[in-house]
């Protein structure tokens, strides 16, 4: 069985109760984009404060420096702790910072991972962080390794859009979980998969459903609609 050797971008954590939680780890490209979005936001704030502090003279300069310091070091910390691990950039890209066991990230971990940006930055523009991200199995930069955090994709499940022409049918036999998921998936994705291919897939399941041909596909989709709650 080679199942464990299959490449996958998901990692899972097992709770003491034996329940597996699975999350998709976020890789370099999407994280770089999120960082850039955050950088633009920070740049806007800098520009705004720069203009405002121009009117205040020396005091304005001091204020600018203090806000700059806070923004540079605690902008990510603030959002990670108070906004469920999502800075504006991460939110835009559908990312979230969590601990290695998928619990929400706290003050300690967030401060460590963001203070170590200095290490990731070396020698310039996050090259070390990038290397570490590519080399570590769960796409962790040095700050993540030290703080024990992960950046994961947030599941965005939209409500499945069903073709109204599908007539729901009650399944005639007991279905396992994998079977139910497969049938639902086929029903929901019936718009993106070509008709002949759908026929082919339905034909594969003919020994289970007991119906072949076009009726088989119709039956499968009906079962999918029924499983999704249309009666």
């Amino acid at each position: 069985m080679q199942a464990s050797r299959l490449l996958d971008n998901h990692c899972s954590v097992e709770t003491p109760e034996g329940i597996d939680f699975t999350q998709a780890m976020a890789g370099p490209v999407v994280r770089i984009l999120a960082f850039l979005i955050d950088m633009v936001w920070r740049g806007l704030v800098y520009a705004l404060i720069g203009i405002l502090s121009g009117f205040l003279g020396g005091f304005g300069m001091g204020l600018y420096l203090i806000i700059g310091f806070l923004l540079e070091w605690f902008y990510p910390v603030f959002f990670e702790v108070f906004r469920q691990g999502q800075t504006p950039g991460k939110k835009a890209m559908g990312l979230r910072v969590v601990n290695e066991d998928f619990t929400p990230v706290g003050w300690g971990a967030s401060v460590i991972r963001n203070l170590l940006r200095a290490a990731d930055f070396f020698p310039l523009m996050y090259v070390s962080g990038l290397l570490s991200m590519v080399l570590s199995r769960r796409f962790q930069r040095l700050g993540d390794l030290a703080a024990g955090t992960l950046v994961v994709h947030v599941d965005r499940q939209s409500a499945p859009q069903l073709d109204v022409s599908i007539k729901p049918r009650m399944p005639q036999q007991a279905l396992t979980r994998a079977e139910r998921q497969g049938i639902i998936s086929l029903t929901v994705r019936s718009r993106t998969i070509s008709e002949p291919r759908q026929q082919e897939l339905a034909e594969l399941l003919a020994p289970v459903t007991g119906v072949t041909g076009e009726a088989g596909l119709e039956r499968l989709k009906g079962m999918g609609a029924w499983l999704l709650g249309r009666k």
Binding site: N9, A24, M25, A26, V30, F139, H153
Partner: peptide, 8 residues
């Protein structure tokens, strides 16, 4: 985006 990660 996840497909890109898989590519890595």
């Amino acid at each position: 985006w996840q497909a890109l990660d898989l590519g890595v």
